[in-house]
Write a protein that binds this DNA or RNA. Structure first.
Length: 152
DNA sequence: GCCAACGTTGGC
DNA sequence: GCCAACGTTGGC
């Protein structure tokens, strides 16, 4: 079982949005980056845990923990011309984009902010903190996971 | 709103 | 296969 970090802009999908979903479960759609896609498609397994991260907002940071409850399947939004994430190149018989289902395990007691994460030497190697990192789905090591949760 | 960093596209 | 142009991400 592995650990991950998944970014979402709260203006479009926040922790509260997830809380309000039936069974607190959602299809994690709209990933349109190959590296992130490869993680979702090839490496995400049922039972994996991920930090839910708020980006592009007042206080970017980790706000919750989600669990992978369904492994990769084709992203239906890629085939839907009405959808913001529509990709005209997508073919149902040879899907390019994938989703997983995640369920909210719990909200953190507080936001562990990006600025705070940056102050910890132990986290200096985190992918999230690498300059220019734009991946919306990325692995977190077990050591980083434990360390961050201890900050809560 | 700015802009650095990066991924993707497309001409050659 | 190179690389310039372009679009996007995301912190500030």
């Amino acid at each position: 079982m592995r650990y991950w970090l998944m970014k979402s802009e709260p203006a479009s999908f926040s922790l509260d949005t997830l809380k309000a979903c039936p069974k607190k479960t959602t299809m994690w759609d709209g990933v349109r980056n190959y590296q992130a896609r490869n993680f979702l498609r090839d490496e995400f397994e049922r039972g994996d845990l991920a930090f839910f991260y708020h980006s592009s907002c007042e206080e970017p940071g980790i706000v919750g923990i989600v669990e992978v409850v369904k492994e990769a399947y084709p992203d239906p939004t890629a085939l839907d011309p009405e959808n913001h994430h529509y990709d005209p190149r997508e073919k149902a018989e040879a899907p390019r984009w994938f989703v997983v289902d995640v369920k909210l395990k719990r909200a953190l007691k507080r936001t562990i902010g990006l600025a705070e994460l940056k102050t910890h030497e132990a986290l200096a190697g985190m992918r999230l903190l690498a300059t220019g990192n734009r991946l919306s789905v990325m692995p977190v090591s077990a050591e980083e996971w434990r360390y961050i949760l201890a900050l809560e």
